[in-house]
Design a protein around this nucleic acid. Sequence first.
DNA 1: GACATATAGTTAGTTATGCAACTAATATAA
DNA 2: TTATATTAGTTGCATAACTAACTATATGTC
Lengths: 151, 151
Amino acid sequence: MSNNQFKRGELYSVINGMATTAVARRLQKNFRNAGLDITIEQWSVLYHLWKEDGLSQLELGNRTFRDKASTTRLIDNLEKQELVVRVASKEDRRINLVYLTDIAKPLQQITYELANQTMNEALLDINKEEIEIVKNVFQRVYDNLTSKDLI
Amino acid sequence: MSNNQFKRGELYSVINGMATTAVARRLQKNFRNAGLDITIEQWSVLYHLWKEDGLSQLELGNRTFRDKASTTRLIDNLEKQELVVRVASKEDRRINLVYLTDIAKPLQQITYELANQTMNEALLDINKEEIEIVKNVFQRVYDNLTSKDLI
DNA sequence: GACATATAGTTAGTTATGCAACTAATATAA
DNA sequence: TTATATTAGTTGCATAACTAACTATATGTC
C-alpha cells in the first residue's frame, strides 16, 4: 500500500482564506513543480503582504495565527531569500514593518493561480453551503476555546 | 491586544477521531496542567496503541497521517520516555512492532477524560449534523486530492 | 524626572515535519 | 539461484512550531 501523502496529522480545508494540511501540502507540491522555492508557511505571510504591504511582525503573526517567535524566524527566512525586508518604524522603534521586495512582487500572480487551481481540485464536488457550514463550525470552535481564556 | 492563542495557521475540529490545531493545542495545555508530560503528537500515537497494541511503525504512520521518518522520531521520543518499546517482528524482521509499556497503560483513562472534556468545550454549541458535514467535507477534500495521484 | 509596567521583537532549547538518500530484509523474476 | 525490485525503517538536512527568558523601547504614575 502506498504511503499516506498528507502529513502533520491534519486535513486541510478553507477557513477564512486559509487552508488546512491536505490542501496546503498539495499547494506546496504545486509550488515546487512550478519551480517556486517557497513553503506554504512563507506563502501565508506573503499572501497577507500582497493584500497589505508594510505590516508589523506582530500583525502578521495575528493574521497568520502564529506567535511572535515563529513569526520572527519565518521572516528571517524570507529575508534570507530576499523576498521581504524589515524596516524599523519611525513612530515606534520597537516595531519592524515588513515590506515586499521587487523579487517577491511578481510571485503574487503565479501563486494566486496555483492556489486557486489547488482549491478547485480540493473542493471539486463541495458546494457553497457546505463550505459555509465548515467555516462557521470552525469559527465557533475557535470562539468556544478562546472565550474560556478570558474568564 | 492579547496575542492569538492558536498557532500553526490552522483551526482544529474533529475528523475521524483526530482533532485539528485549536483543539489540539488546548488539549496539550490540559495535559500539561494535569502534569502529563506528553505532546499531542505523542498522544495521537498512544491513542491508536490503546485501541490496538503492537502495531507496526508503518501502520501507526498511516493511522496518524505521518510519513515514516516522522513516525520513527516520534517513537524514538516515546521510547526515551519509556512509554513504548519496539519489538522486531518474528515473521518479517524488517518490521518493528510497537508495544505500550506498563508506564503508558494507566495514562489511557486520564487522557481519555481530558480529551473528552476538551472536545466538549470546543464543540459546545455545535450539533451532530454539523459535525457530520464537517467530517464528510474533509473526507471528500482528502479523496479529491489523493485520487489525482493515482492517475 | 524616576520607577514600574507593558509591548515588539529576538534567542535558546526542544519537538515535530517533510524530503531524499541510505541500510537491511524480503519478494519476484530470469 | 542469482539478480533485481520492493518494503520497513533510519539518518541527514532544512523549515517550522511553542515556551520561556531575554533586550530594547515606550507608556503611565507618582
